[in-house]
Simulated assay, not measured.
Amino acid sequence: MYVILGASGHIGSVVIDALQASSEKVIAVVHSAQKAAAIKHGGVEPVIADVADTGQLRSILQKGRRAFLLNPPGDIKGDTNAEEMKTARSIAAALDGSGLEKLVVASTYGALDGAGIGDLSVLYEFERLVKASGIPTAVNRGAYYFTNLDMLLQSVRETGRLLTPFPADMKMPMVSPRDLGEAAVARLKSPVDDIGIDYVEGPERYSFADVANAFSSLLGRPVTIETIAREKFEEYYLGLGFSWAAARCYAKMTEVTIDTGFEMPGRPHRGGTTLDKHLEALLAKH
C-alpha cells in the first residue's frame, strides 16, 4: 500500500494514475471532499486530511508501506514561509511510529540552508527533517516547473509582452510535473536502498528568451520580453496577488537564484516533456 500526499495536484495525480495503472493499492491524501470525489476510483482510497494535524496524518501513514511526501504550497495571500514550515514539521513528525519502509520526497533544485528563501530553504529543511526520521529516504529535486509559466499566458496573449524577473538569456533547467510524477513512481517502486538525492528535469534547458519564442510561434504573433528590475521584484509579486510577507520571500528566492545560478547536475534524470509540448497543451486547455 502506497500513501500519496498532494494526491490531487499536478505531480500527485500523475503518481496516483501510474500506480493505479499497475494495479497498486493507494491511499490518496487530499484536503477536501470535492477533491476526494474526483479521484475515487479502483484501487485508490481517498482520505481527507490536514497535513498540519500530525496525529491524524500519522494514523494514515501507518496504513501504508511506502509514501510519497510533498509539502503543500502555502496560500500566497498569507505568510507562505511560516505556513510551509509548519506543514513540513508536521509531516516529518508524523513519520515517527509510522512503520514505513521507504519514503520519496519532492524537493527542488537549489535547496539550501537558510531562512525566508521560499522553497529553497523550506524544502531543504523538509529534506533534513524527513531524513532524520531514520526511514530510508529518496529525494527527487525537481527543476523549475513548466507550470510556473502558465500564469503568463493571459498577459502574453493580451499585450504581446512576457514579464519575468530572470535575465532573458539565463539558461534554466525546467521540467513538467508529469515527468516529476513518473520519476517519483520509479523511486517508490525501486529497492529500499535506492536513496539519496536525484535531480529531475526535462530533455532540454531553456531561457526566458526561448519561452518568448515558443509563445510567439504557438500564438502566431511577436512576443517581447520585459525584464523586471531587481528593486521591483516585491512589487511584481504583489501584483500577482501575493501578501507582503510572501512577496518578500519570493523576491529573496528569485534574487538568490539569479545570483547563485540554478543547479546544473551533470547526470540528471531527464523526462520527455519539452517546453513546446507543455505550452501546446496549455493553449489547448485555454
Results as ranks from 00 to 15, higher is better:
Glu204Ser: 13
Arg221Ser: 13
Lys252Asp: 07
Lys285Asp: 11
Asp210Tyr: 02
Thr87Ala: 09
Leu162His: 02
Arg157Glu: 13
Ser23Asn: 15
Ile11Asp: 06
Lys86Gln: 13
Glu235Gly: 14
Asp169Ser: 10
Ser176His: 07
His41Cys: 09
Val200Asn: 03
Val130Ile: 11
Glu234Lys: 15
Ala138Asp: 02
Met170Gln: 09
Gly134Glu: 01
Ala246Glu: 06
Ser190Val: 03
Thr227Leu: 05
Lys77Ala: 12
Thr159Tyr: 09
Val29Ala: 13
Thr227Lys: 11
Ala251Trp: 00
Arg205Ala: 15
Leu57Met: 03
Val47Ala: 04
Thr54Pro: 14
Ser98Pro: 11
Gln34Ala: 15
Glu201His: 12
Pro167Asn: 09
Met174Tyr: 01
Leu275Met: 12
Ile4Gly: 07
Lys285His: 10
Gly241Tyr: 09
Asp113Leu: 13
Ser121Leu: 02
Ser98Tyr: 09
His286Leu: 06
Met170Phe: 10
Ala246Leu: 06
Thr257Leu: 08
Gln20Arg: 15
Gly97Met: 04
Ala209Ser: 15
Asn148Gln: 04
Ser217Thr: 15
Ala37Cys: 09
Lys285Asn: 11
Pro46Gln: 03
Ala183Tyr: 09
Tyr206Ser: 01
Arg248His: 06
Glu101Asp: 14
Ala132Thr: 12
Ile76Val: 10
Ala168Tyr: 06
Phe166Ala: 04
Lys102Ile: 00
Lys171Phe: 08
Ala37Trp: 01
Arg267Ala: 15
Pro222Asn: 11
